[in-house]
Nucleic acid binder design. Sequence first.
DNA 1: CGCTATCTACCGTTTGGTAGATAAGAACGT
DNA 2: ACGTTCTTATCTACCAAACGGTAGATAGCG
Lengths: 191, 191
Amino acid sequence: MPPATGRRRLPLAERREEILKAATELIAASGFKGVTLEAFAEACGMTKAGLLHHFRSRDDLLIAVLERRDELDLTTVVDTLEPVSGPAASRAVMTRFVRRNLGQRSLVQLYTVLAAEAIDPAHPAHDYFRTRLREGRAMLEHSLLSWHPHPGLAAVELLAFLDGLQLNWLRDPDIDYLAQWQSFADRFFTA
Amino acid sequence: MPPATGRRRLPLAERREEILKAATELIAASGFKGVTLEAFAEACGMTKAGLLHHFRSRDDLLIAVLERRDELDLTTVVDTLEPVSGPAASRAVMTRFVRRNLGQRSLVQLYTVLAAEAIDPAHPAHDYFRTRLREGRAMLEHSLLSWHPHPGLAAVELLAFLDGLQLNWLRDPDIDYLAQWQSFADRFFTA
DNA sequence: CGCTATCTACCGTTTGGTAGATAAGAACGT
DNA sequence: ACGTTCTTATCTACCAAACGGTAGATAGCG
């Protein structure tokens, strides 16, 4: 590693990834509105102008952060696409989802904080979350269709609980995320 | 009513209330970081300087908004203080809480958006939510103590579900808030 | 040496907040 | 009823700092 002072020149892809990683942490901590362009730059040891060489604008950076998160999730999504049926299988899929979140606290926080911020229709990520969450609910509802008496109600209930649990876990890390999930699932998946 | 143009001079208490009401709506819509001092002022037909005559700073206004919300909730809190015991009584209390929220969408949104924004320790309302939510959970846990086998788990679960349901209801008003609650409660209060 | 990632310097706008002028309305005497 | 005075709610004008973004100079690496 070269001395911390002075200029560091990195290949395009590497620097891009470094910026996105840092930006994810910052947004997770303070929301998108709460972080300035300069703060994003400083977090990876460069200036605003330097950062804007990689992303055309601040909003552009946000979109890139979200797309990166999607890419990181791709593995899980692919797994979920396997056609599953029955309560046990559904529960297993969701449990794996919970376990993965447990180890990606900052990504979860990014998503949670940003999703709440983006309730505002004027937020640059409003549409992103709108379509994305709608799709998620539809997929879940579809997988509940084969065995649950009220797939619509149940899908909303499950997602609401997970959203709320994440939110509370972020507020208070002492909460036992996994145990809470199992406790909920014990009742939910015996209907 | 005097003509809309020109200066309107109101008694202190009245203007204060008007400002707080307008601010509540705005914060609910766009979060606290998302609204400028001038926007707050303009919303009740005055200038920044005029508003700052009533609230020393922008952060001061936020605190006042939250305190006002607490006062508006006081009635419900007092009701809750009646010592209740048993699942049916607990459920009745919570159902009343849900029903009341149903008619106060903008207050719910204020609380939800702000609570998520305030996960950031640097947010001006961070401490407010920290203590307030902790208290709420303790109260609930206490009331579950007499009949629920796992009061700690259950308290978190119930609050998480309500938080998440509110969040999703705000994102998608078509969700049947009340029905979702009843469906959850049917399982939750038979343990 | 050439390419380009990065920097310095700057711009126009918006931000939260201040200082001092102005006017609305209540109180009061006549 | 009516003017006068006094209080203070509100305004106009302004400021320094912070914001997102641009133009052109500079320097690290193949």
